[in-house]
Design a protein around this nucleic acid. Structure first.
Lengths: 119, 119
DNA sequence: CTTGAATCTGACATGCGTGTCAGGTTCTAG
DNA sequence: CTAGAACCTGACACGCATGTCAGATTCAAG
């Protein structure tokens, strides 16, 4: 599929998709004229990338991480090195803290919303 | 307490504390010479602000939200207006989605970490 | 062919909380 | 009184994914 359709199906802008490619997170075949041609699996991959961004990982980490992931089209093509594992473990801890923060904030909002609904 | 101690106790930089005040999220008494003097409750408040930032709320929303919160020193001093409630409800939904994303990303990391630990 | 939609590259702009620096004033311990 | 730590204001810079624009090229339908 081409970039427009991929953008529509993932909800990610074309601009961002080109950026992902530039950073090495996403690859695409090219038509003779130079237009990008994506495989079906690109949809899942883009969604994963978005999720990892939302989790606070930077492009560089994602680039390292992606080849170690079980993708839609087959198993992982690489194994995480020990130092990468260490970094990912730290990221994991950060994500845990982030979730805890989010839950607290959600509770805060609930309290305010509830207080406004009553008397 | 003064700004240095508040910064130390919350882990938030002095720069940010001044910024919070500028945005109307935090107030401080002043010494005759112009130095900021914070009440004890400022510690909790700053931590709350940080959590809300982490949850993706912008200063403006936080400014509206804070007076409706049950603070350490007493009950809420304001009630959320219907339109604010609507916005907060939307924020709450966004936070829910964010949490779901984070859990997925954490699972992804776990998978990669685990795959590297095994044979 | 033609024509309009889609895509290409490259460059500059934006948000927004935070870092940082400069130059000056205030506080506090000795 | 004095020295040094702490604080003040104001201004500029950054990160970094994303928005946006310009000008050119390619694709696909008539």
């Amino acid at each position: 599929m081409r970039i427009g359709e991929l953008a529509r199906r993932t909800g990610v802008s074309e601009r961002s998709l080109r950026y992902y490619e530039q950073q090495g997170m996403l690859t695409a075949e090219r038509t003779p004229g130079g237009h990008r041609e994506y495989p079906e699996a690109a949809v899942d991959r883009v969604i994963r990338i978005q999720e990892l961004f939302a989790a606070g990982l930077c492009s560089e980490k994602i680039v390292q991480l992606l080849p170690c992931m079980r993708d839609t089209d087959g198993g992982p093509s690489a194994r995480a090195t020990p130092s990468l594992v260490a970094e990912l473990t730290a990221e994991r801890a950060r994500i845990d803290r982030m979730i805890a923060d989010l839950v607290r904030s959600r509770d805060t909002l609930d309290e305010v919303i509830e207080a406004a609904r009553l008397p």
